[in-house]
């Protein structure tokens, strides 16, 4: 089982951003997807650091991939999306707008924010040049199994959301700005205050969601700690680890140990629990009944 580090969902200052990717060169992961996924207003703050991060990661033997935005509406965003291929890296499509800009025959990968729910869509993407698809986190194991089988016949690798606060929704409205009484155009980059998103609790004080600019995340951190064997058996070839604050290189090592068989699901989740924002894990999308559920000791 390979490990992919997904694009950072949060807005970190450029020095922190650069340090994170420099550190990742030492992490036991196979691929790194970077670039701006959530909000086009953030990119100018760290854009000039991208080439060095890409070089360091590539020198360390990682496959480096560039993500598209998750929701493309503005002219500037369309231009950004059209320019992705010019960086000379593989593109991860997280909005089909990016695919519209890829010439036929260019290989690409598909991120978890594209709705790949069935074999028909998978086959259409494969015919267009998809070589790897990270499935939407919402999919149950039965669907993952069917899709992985179909993908194998088409020479496409299947990845699933392995670790991280779940990307539950994307909007035209910025909730971070709204919480500060501002609009998106005048956000003053409020999302930069919360390196793992801003907690949104129920009226009973129960942790529930986290807002991250125009994105809404789960409060819990999804983890496939208990499902590595089931996913491997289903034909999944990679787990996606989504960046968070703290010692992320250590977190990658823990998952590497787990997929290599040196650690069981219990030990991994015990090690993860103190490290995740909000202090809760979930894996309910895979086995139900709902996304927020955690199978705990049951594997």
């Amino acid at each position: 089982m390979e490990l992919t580090v997904g694009p950072n969902q949060f807005f970190w200052e450029a020095p922190r951003w650069a340090k994170f990717y420099a550190g990742l060169a030492r992490a036991p992961v196979d691929r790194v997807v970077l670039g701006e996924l959530v909000c086009s207003k953030r990119l100018p703050f760290y854009q000039d650091r991208l080439p060095e991060a890409i070089e360091v990661l590539a020198d360390a033997g990682k496959e480096v991939v560039l993500t598209s935005l998750a929701l493309v509406t503005l002219k500037r965003e369309r231009r950004m999306t059209a320019d992705l291929l010019a960086m000379g890296l593989e593109v991860e499509v997280n909005d089909l707008t990016a695919l519209a800009h890829l010439p036929e025959g260019v290989e690409f990968s598909v991120g978890p924010l594209v709705n790949v729910y069935n074999e028909g869509t998978l086959a259409w993407l494969a015919a267009r040049g998809a070589r790897r698809i990270c499935l939407p986190p919402e999919l149950p194991l039965d669907s993952v199994r069917v899709l992985a089988r179909a993908a194998a016949d088409l020479g496409v690798s299947i990845e699933v959301w392995g670790h991280g606060r779940l990307p539950l929704a994307i909007s035209g409205r910025c909730y971070h700005a709204r919480l500060h009484g501002r609009t998106k155009d005048n956000c003053q980059f409020a999302c930069g205050d919360d390196p793992d998103g801003r907690a949104v609790d129920t009226l009973d004080g129960q942790p529930f969601l986290a807002v991250n600019g125009v994105q809404t995340l789960s409060a819990s951190t999804a983890s496939m700690a208990h499902h590595v064997e089931a996913l491997a058996e289903a034909g999944v070839s990679a787990l996606r680890l989504s960046p968070q604050s703290g010692d992320f290189v250590r977190l990658c090592r823990l998952y590497r140990d787990r997929v290599a068989g040196g650690m069981d699901g219990e030990a991994l989740s015990a090690a993860l629990l103190p490290e995740v924002a909000g202090g809760a894990l979930s894996d309910g999308f895979l086995n139900g009944p709902c996304g927020a559920d955690w199978s705990g000791g049951r594997a």
Binding site: A70, L166, I170, F208, F285
Partner: peptide, 12 residues
């Protein structure tokens, strides 16, 4: 939310 790109309901 952008329609078709929201799994808040299934999360809960």
């Amino acid at each position: 939310m952008a329609e078709g790109r929201c799994s808040l309901s299934s999360y809960a």
